[in-house]
Design a protein around this nucleic acid. Sequence first.
DNA 1: GCCGCTGATGATCAGGCGATAATCTACACG
DNA 2: CGTGTAGATTATCGCCTGATCATCAGCGGC
Lengths: 228, 228
Amino acid sequence: MSTIRAKRKPSSRRLLPGEREKQIVSEAIRFFSEVGFSGQTRELSRRLGITQPLLYRYFPSKRALLERVYREVFLGRWDPAWRTLLEDRSRPLRARLIEFYRRYTTVVFRPEWIRLYMYAGLAGTGFNRRYIDMLEKQLLRRICAELRVELGLPDSRRARISPFEMELAWDLHGGIFYYCVRKFIYRSRVHEDLAALIEHAVDSLLLGAPTVLGRLLGRKRPPTSIRR
Amino acid sequence: MSTIRAKRKPSSRRLLPGEREKQIVSEAIRFFSEVGFSGQTRELSRRLGITQPLLYRYFPSKRALLERVYREVFLGRWDPAWRTLLEDRSRPLRARLIEFYRRYTTVVFRPEWIRLYMYAGLAGTGFNRRYIDMLEKQLLRRICAELRVELGLPDSRRARISPFEMELAWDLHGGIFYYCVRKFIYRSRVHEDLAALIEHAVDSLLLGAPTVLGRLLGRKRPPTSIRR
DNA sequence: GCCGCTGATGATCAGGCGATAATCTACACG
DNA sequence: CGTGTAGATTATCGCCTGATCATCAGCGGC
């Protein structure tokens, strides 16, 4: 009787393996980002409208599913075009940084990303370290290099970028990241204008860096002013 | 035979209730900050060198123990003397902020505090919200007020401190907090000079704020320069 | 030196959890 | 329509984990 069969969600029965797997991963990302790694497979399967053993048809263990979730979320979200954007010296650095973080926050700094990233960090998995290494290489070091160019300081190929300079870049990045932490993890009331926050964070770096870097290199005054 | 009895740690047997309780709470703070709330009572008791049921003599449930841990860590670490320090206008604001964060980081921004705070945030307990409310009231709003005085802007009692101004203070606080997150949660290699980082974070605020606040209030130039 | 109070332990329960194996059934093909 | 393949389910195992209860044993008072 079709009426009896219709009681089951038709979408959840007898899917192609590829589709079912995508469906599981997609829901697992949402699920584990909400409740953490200790979230139970039974609860996940219930959300999917399937039985719990079915998960084990697609993933040999819960651990394997979690690793798939990580891979999905942390790898492949970095857009190579961002490098071009950051290094386009025909535009003022301020504009480049603002546009970069506007794009970055829409793709990366999302609730499920932030929360999984923090869970992964607390659990001590290697994902954070790997991501941080990537970030320092792809983003922060590049910002430092562009900052030197903008300020007329020695080229980054001639003088190695110092750990202290990196901290300046981390301060910019961390300021924006921490805003997202307050919003998505602490669920605190935050000033809703992210665009304005990004502008301010960028300005903080650009206004503070000349003095701080100048002091670092033994100068009293900013070498040049910031183009706007 | 005393030799047989000596096999047991004498310190762990037959303690006064008060002492045993302190011992449990102290180890529980370390334990749960490392492994998170899903840490098991058996593992905790093993670390303490006691049996697991003994925990239930002192706390009716695991939840009760966790709440005691939170209370211990999050309440009562705020030193009322810090208010006096922050509002001592005989000293430059820069010096006050630097000294405050030097003290604050030694007491509050410690590994077990940071990690428990993050676990609590992810779990959605009310502790973070409460702490953030306290922080905004006790610290951030005060920083904004002092910043206005320093810059010769309207008194905070006459014109209410805006959400955007609060974001400036959050940016300072978040920068230092995020440094600790990288260090204690991500266990990333960080530039070890925390004192220098604090100075830079404070300078960033003080150098950036005049421009940003001036812009906010429709001025072109910083109202006054920053005392050093 | 006995005794009672209470801190501490050993044994165990009930429910939860990841994982497995046997069974069922939807769908394509002839 | 029958039939085989493979997606999906039902039943269940074994272990873990929070919590309970009866029992043991250290220590002070008489």
